[in-house]
């Protein structure tokens, strides 16, 4: 299955490009992508995963066509 990954803010530095596609086996969780990227420490603690406006946790099982956003819950105005 194909899953699109979008990295925002400081999480951009965990991959060559902030917006890319992965070909993944069925049953892959969002947490597996987090682990694969090597996000840890305070940045892991402050990470949110968003799927079409919905917060998901690391045990979320990805589906074909998903677009998973990695971001910190920073604010703006």
């Amino acid at each position: 299955m194909k899953v699109r990954i979008k990295l925002f803010q400081d999480y951009k530095r965990y991959h060559d490009t902030p917006d890319y596609e992965l070909d993944l086996p069925e049953g892959t969780t969002a947490g597996a992508i987090v682990q694969e990227l090597g996000i840890k420490g305070p940045e892991l603690a402050y990470l949110i995963l968003i799927l079409k406006g919905k917060r998901v946790l690391d045990d979320y099982i990805l589906h074909d066509g998903d677009e998973l956003v990695f971001a910190a819950p920073i604010g703006g105005g």
Binding site: G53, G76, G77
Partner: peptide
């Protein structure tokens, strides 16, 4: 007055 968090900051709600 600009509303919302702006570009580059995922701005969402459920």
């Amino acid at each position: 007055q600009g509303a919302g968090l702006g570009l580059g900051i995922p701005d969402y709600g459920g």
